[in-house]
Nucleic acid binder design. Structure first.
Lengths: 151, 151
DNA sequence: TCGGATTCTTGATTGATTCCAGTTTGTGGG
DNA sequence: CCCACAAACTGGAATCAATCAAGAATCCGA
């Protein structure tokens, strides 16, 4: 886990001013990846006392556009943030409890970018979300064995 | 394009009652894929006259859970619907204008499902969204050459 | 230490979606 | 062919996430 001074360095390098709310948000997202905005507000308030939700929204956007955080937004839930940036990874989302885990995309050379027909689009990123059930929600008895896998 | 009687058959087979709003919604989504709810409401009203937005929301949900429509929800835009169901295809989304096009995923055998570590999740679907710029928005002069492709 | 721009606070607002109570409308049984 | 019941629709209010706006506080380089 990075230290506070490490967070300070990150903010400085990104050309952002150093404020308590920013350090608290950065630290909260590092400690608890895949949290939604509301939960982050809660953590920041537990750390600093009163902080306006607007400040947290602002900070999250600033850090996201600065590249220090990454925003993920699975269908059906509010925006979530994580601190893992700069590497290529995707997510698994649990259909029943909404839990999210990281998945490294290791398959050789970017297979997902080779769609059959790109309709003339200049594609620069492929975003993959895996849907399923997490270990806690997929008890062996309650889960039908075969899923309709589609890619 | 399916005929009205074809739509009626689809509704009956799904065990849904036959109503004008439902036929209008089904027809609108067939004719205009990837439209958001607001636009669909507009089309339905142009067709039938006054229809409550609530009815359209209800119909869209009923048809989606019945499997007649598919709901897609790209980050940063409202829910959209399409009538292509039952086949394996993904979408390209234009970063600047929001246009959406279908992309068949042809790469042999579901490469995207072979994530390195699934954390014990029982994965049943992989959803892929390609981000880029559509032909209209990617004029050769205005586009920086190298993109930061990531998968 | 000081000045000015950036950032935070408070409070209102938007936009998509859902909830609710009451009325209307398909559909199968008589 | 008609009736009754359940499903579907209407109109309006409510919710939730997120954004906008104006003023106060704070950071940071000179």
């Amino acid at each position: 886990m990075p230290t506070t001074t490490e967070y300070e360095r990150q903010l400085r390098e990104a050309g952002l001013r150093l404020t308590r709310p920013r350090l608290a948000v950065l630290s909260a997202v590092h400690d608890h990846p895949h949290l939604d905005t509301d939960a982050i507000i809660g953590l920041v308030r537990a750390d600093l006392g009163a902080v306006s939700h607007q400040a947290v929204y602002d900070v999250l956007r600033a850090l996201t556009t600065a590249g220090l955080l990454r925003r993920i937004e699975p269908t059906g839930s509010a925006a979530r943030y994580e601190a893992r940036v700069g590497d290529n990874h995707h997510h698994v989302v649990c259909r029943s409890c909404g839990a999210i885990a990281d998945v490294d995309c290791v398959v050789g050379a970017a297979p997902c970018l080779t769609g059959s027909d790109d309709h003339g689009f200049a594609v620069d990123e492929a975003e993959v979300v895996f849907w399923g059930h997490c270990p806690d929600c997929s008890t062996p008895t309650s889960q039908p064995p075969g899923g309709n896998s589609r890619v």
